[in-house]
Each structure stands twice: as C-alpha cells, then as structure tokens.
Design a protein around this nucleic acid. Structure first.
Lengths: 136, 136
DNA sequence: TTAAACTATACTAATTTAGTAGAATATAGT
DNA sequence: ACTATATTCTACTAAATTAGTATAGTTTAA
C-alpha cells in the first residue's frame, strides 16, 4: 500500500498540473481543495521542491509551481522520490538493490523471481505514464 | 515493499513444494534452511494452515505439509493472505475496497487512475503464477 | 508415558507514519 | 522602511505496524 505521503504528493502535483496558468499556488489552497493537513502537505511539497519537481516563491503572492511540463514528469521518478523503491523486495530492485540476509542463493529464490516480474511490469507502467497522462 | 512475513511465507511454501514427497516437515527444518526465526515462522505457518494452504500433523514425526498440488496454488491468493490487498490504494482494490476520506470525486482522481492500472497488471501476474511456476 | 511437535496468548523493542508546534526567513506591496 | 503574507526549517510526538520473544499449554506417535 502507498503511504499517504505518496498519495497526497501525487494529488498535489495533479492539482498544479490542472491549473490553467503556472502561477504560484499557496499550500493552503491545495490543502483545502484536496483535504490534506496543511502542515503535512507542507513537508511533502518541500520534498518535491528539493527533488526538482516544484519551484517555490516566497512572500506575498508566493506559493509552489511546476518547474517542468507535466508531459515531462515521469511518474516512476515521482514514485521513487515519494514512496521509495518500486520493487517489492530489495533484492528485486535496480535503484535500491540490497541482498537479503536470509538468502543463500538468489538465483533459486522463488520470491525474488516472482517479485522481479511484478517489478518489471510496474516499472513499465510508471515509466510510460507522465503527470500529464494521469491528470487529464 | 513486502513484509518479511510475506517473504518468509513464500519461501516456506516453496521449500515444501520442492520436497520430493509430501510428508510433514518440521518447522525447525524450514527455519534452519531458510534462516528464519523459528517462532516467527511458526506464526506464519499457522496462518497458512488456517487459510487452507497447509496441513499440520501433531506429535512425533509431525510437521507441516502442502494440502494442494503446487500447480493449483495461486500466488495471488497467497499474497492476499500474507500481505493483504494487491492494490496500492484502498480505492483501487477489488477485494479490500474502501473509499478515500479525502477524495471528492473518485472518477477524476489521478492517483487512483494510475494505481488501478498498476493493480490490474500486478494481479494478472500473480494470478498467472502458481506455486509450481515459481518453485521450479 | 514421554518426548516431539503444534497451538495459543501476551508482551515488547524498533521503526514508520502522519502528523503538530513554533520560530526563522524571504518578499510584494504600501 | 514597514508589514502582512507565505515559505522554510527544526524539533517533537502519538499511534500503528513490524518483527520478533517468552511462556504456557495441548496433542499424539512411538
């Protein structure tokens, strides 16, 4: 299951993508519209900003805005920033690979075999969907 | 990410499926071979027994054994018992559906749209793999 | 009858999740 | 320059989940 952080992050990005213009939107507006706690959303938007998805403008009339065209924002990248590894097991992950302590032989591990197949497919879907694809 | 419970559960089922005969295997033997804490594995095997995947024989020479042919054990069912919903969002689940509190309109929710696509694909993979498929 | 093996209940430490609280900093407009 | 508005940053916390431990009891084959 996705954490709420990820769900809220995707919703916030969608909200920004759906705006006609790309002027800064205040946290409070997004929070109210999507029914998210302001403070929690704050930390999520900050993460997205530090990860290069959003820009922020301080002061009056400030807020957050998309830095890139929604068509160029890969949901796989969004997922990795918000949720972490796409794979269901560390030993089936490309970007966050880790060997299992308990596993003697990775090549015969049935769990790894199955989860690698799931991972490959999930990755394909997340990579082929841009923010624009899911927002409109 | 999968919980260790799920990973260990799949490994234990695989271990049993790979045995030549289907005679009871003691918890300790599986635990030692797969490097799992005996007590933790105990609770996992008990769950699999109560869910109809395993049989247990008490007393000397007892242990756990597969009730069905590995070919007839769907990994989707195993996954649901051990890990829970296959969907990444409750609102994208068939078997564990729940409406999101924060969502005004499910039909325009981008997160739901994307996660439904992921779910459909993951389910297809898990359903098309039996225990026999991944064990051998 | 006894030892091996499963069953069941209760407890716990560590981690993660989903926030809260409060102060600091930056900026647009007057 | 001042002030209201808005982001930024740090620190804290309650609740839930995970991954076990511990202990006691029950069943049954030999």
């Amino acid at each position: 299951m996705l954490s709420k952080k990820t769900k809220y992050g995707i919703k916030a990005l969608t909200y920004l993508a759906r705006r006609e213009n790309n002027e800064p939107v205040q946290i409070a507006e997004i929070a109210k519209s999507e029914h998210i706690s302001i403070k929690f959303l704050e930390s999520i938007l900050l993460l997205l900003r530090n990860s290069g998805f959003l820009g922020a403008k301080k002061g009056k009339g400030g807020g957050y805005y998309l830095i890139k065209d929604p068509k160029d924002i890969s949901m796989a990248k969004v997922y990795r920033i918000l949720e972490g590894p796409i794979a269901l097991l560390p030993c089936a992950s490309h970007n966050f690979y880790e060997k299992c302590d308990d596993c003697d032989d990775e090549s015969t591990c049935a769990a790894r075999r199955l989860m690698t197949e799931v991972r490959d497919n999930t990755l394909k879907i997340l990579e082929s969907n841009s923010l624009a694809d899911i927002a409109f």
